[in-house]
């Protein structure tokens, strides 16, 4: 479900007229597949309103902000609609909030603490962004915290510092209509969500195993230039499924096969290392080089029966270097 958020009712007016949504509570309207709402002006109203909205209607997955913004550098054509890229926030007269939000658009926007009506503030803000509004950072902040997708589209209504509210009010309906038309165009052409890799049948996956499986699957598809189906076929999953073992054990085998396919050198090396360690194991001397077999870290365990056995084993260890157990890379 998507929500369209505005600062002022007049910005939303064309949307309300065309969609005729029902009012569900103060400033919030709902149609079958859309919420329309307005938050009031300024960072705090915006934050308060959107947090309430997202809390009350968890079915909202995506929020789009439409609204007016002023140009800080005078380089945008008036009445064009800009898709927003980065959103910054002015903290006080001479400081910016470090936290910013990157959206999918191109034009940078700064959310100011006040209306910009002096040249000094305009110059300062123009060093960070081309457009200024009063709310978008708050919407982006709330969306990020609740893992909602956020996009913002700003209609360049005037130049900062020249701001004449009465003029904008008189044009409000026409400006809202421009945003509505822009919305219709974008809405009919949404970008497709990323496809998640589905889990193969007949295996058992916990959440973390599923995550591991998807990671490996994605990497192997890229490495081999194939799709998921072709990949599973090449891994001979059918044979694994025919084994008379528990689904959990089948998953273990599948993941091991995938890991081996991704880094065969690592597996060959591991096997050779295990072979090199066998004579030591037989003497109850155990080396452990950690899961990634980095030679600079290792553990040694030794079992002994009595003092004599202890000393004999120590003597054997005295002349050995752990690195000598590592297979020679030239051999692989």
């Amino acid at each position: 479900m998507k929500a369209l958020i505005f600062a002022h009712r007049m910005e939303a007016i064309a949307f309300l007229d065309h969609l005729q949504p029902r009012s569900c509570e103060k400033n919030i309207y709902r149609s079958d597949d859309l919420f329309i709402t307005y938050s009031g002006e300024g960072l705090f109203s915006a934050l308060y309103h959107i947090q309430n909205l997202l809390l009350q209607y968890p079915e909202i997955e995506e929020v789009w902000n439409y609204g007016l913004a002023a140009s800080l550098n005078g380089q945008q054509e008036l009445h064009t609609i800009q898709s927003i890229g980065n959103i910054y926030r002015q903290k006080d007269q001479e400081n910016m909030d470090f936290q910013s939000f990157a959206l999918s658009g191109e034009m940078d926007l700064v959310t100011s603490i006040d209306r910009v009506n002096d040249a000094k503030t305009k110059t300062y803000l123009s060093r960070f962004a081309s457009l200024v509004d009063r709310e978008a950072w708050a919407y982006a902040y709330a969306c990020q915290r609740t893992h909602k997708t956020f996009r913002a589209f700003k209609l360049v209504s005037d130049f900062a510092e020249d701001l004449e509210c009465s003029q904008i009010r008189s044009r409000a309906e026409a400006l809202s209509l421009m945003m509505w038309e822009d919305y219709l165009q974008r809405h009919s052409n949404p970008s497709l969500p990323a496809k998640t890799i589905s889990l193969p049948k007949g295996f058992y996956f916990t959440a973390s195993l599923a995550h591991r499986y998807r990671e490996l699957n994605k990497k192997l598809q890229k490495k081999r230039g194939c799709n998921s189906e072709e990949l599973l076929c090449s891994l001979e999953t059918k044979k694994i499924l025919e084994l008379k073992i528990l689904p959990k054990e089948k998953t273990k085998i599948l993941l091991e096969k995938m890991e081996e396919a991704l880094d065969p050198d690592f597996f060959t090396f591991k096997k050779k290392l295990q072979a090199n360690l066998t004579p030591w194991k037989e003497q109850e001397i155990y080396f452990d080089f950690g899961p990634y077999l980095e030679p600079n870290e290792g553990q040694l365990q030794m079992r002994f029966q009595n003092d004599k056995d202890f000393l004999t084993k120590l003597q054997r260890l005295q002349n050995m270097k752990p690195s000598s157990i590592f297979p020679d890379p030239n051999e692989s």
């Binding site: 994605k218 990497k219 192997l220 598809q221 890229k222 490495k223 890991e259 991704l262 880094d263 050198d265 690592f266 060959t268 090396f269 591991k270 899961p291 990634y292 077999l293 980095e294 030679p295 600079n296 870290e297 297979p327 890379p329 030239n330 692989s332």
Partner: peptide
């Protein structure tokens, strides 16, 4: 996210950097 550079077994190595597994590194360098 789509780069095939990431389609490999990356591990945390001796100096905490993320690298290929030691055997693959050795093979490449050798």
């Amino acid at each position: 996210p789509e780069s095939d550079m990431l389609a490999a077994n990356f591990v945390k190595s001796f100096d905490n950097k993320v690298r290929y597994s030691k055997p693959l590194r050795d093979k490449i360098l050798y």
